[in-house]
Amino acid sequence: MIPAEFDYLAPDSLQEAIQALADGGEDAKLLAGGHSLLPLMKLRLATPALLVDLRKVPGLHGIERENGSWRIGAMTTHSELEHSEQLGVVARAAGTIADPQVRNRGTIGGSLAHGDPASDLPAVMLITEGSVTLQGPGGQRVVAANELFQDYMETAIEPTEVLTEVRFPVLEGWGFGYQKFNRRSEDWAMVAVCAVIQQTGDICEDVRVGLTHMGSVPLRATAVEEALRGQSLNAENIAKAAQEAAQGTSPPADLNASEEYKRHLARVLSRRALEEAAGLS
């Protein structure tokens, strides 16, 4: 399978990349790791007339800690995230993406910009309460993760904007859990649940739970969070709170799982992710 014809540019600066996107109009697309875009192009489900490759643009790479936040360049690969254990739940989730070869190419920027509700990092960005920096012809703006994902494969990123970096607070002292369910290890999540917990003794001071593939966008399981906040973190309370995980969701059924089965998975995986985050498993 070979993609339809297109023109290709690999600009040396961010300004040139933004200009090329603007000049290319709606048929121009950015290329990062290519591991979502190229499969679509090979199937001719996407036929951009121009690809603007970000590989030579300086400053889009790397993981740095700055004033209590992590700053991650958009072109940082999943495998670099996976091997940065200090990133906690982000590293863990990145390590479950596909397989080593895909992780060596796929990037955090591409993953968030693509906006596929089955991908692992979007829900994780929701619970870290992070943000992305977008650079366009009119300058720079910051969009919070909970405003980034708008609908199935639709984000707040304008066609002429480049996602340059991802920021999220260092969750010092928070426990985390990540539970992903699929039939084969290489597959996308049928459902995945991420959780972070801040606890004092066995009391849950704060908790955040994110759901992957339970709707057209990643979701926060707020009912679970409310049920557990302030409670003591034992198996019984966690199991009770996790029962709320599917509340308000409308999971897309697919070949692998019906809606009802996905709701079931959300409850089971929430319990497991919370137990893990609370250090009970």
Binding site: Y8, A10, L31, G34, H35, L38, P39, D53, R55, S79, P100, Q101, V102, N104, R105
Partner: peptide, 12 residues
């Protein structure tokens, strides 16, 4: 680094 060469453009 190991990559799947069916999902990389030669120009990349």
């Amino acid at each position: 680094r190991a990559v799947k060469s069916c999902t990389v453009l030669a120009v990349q």
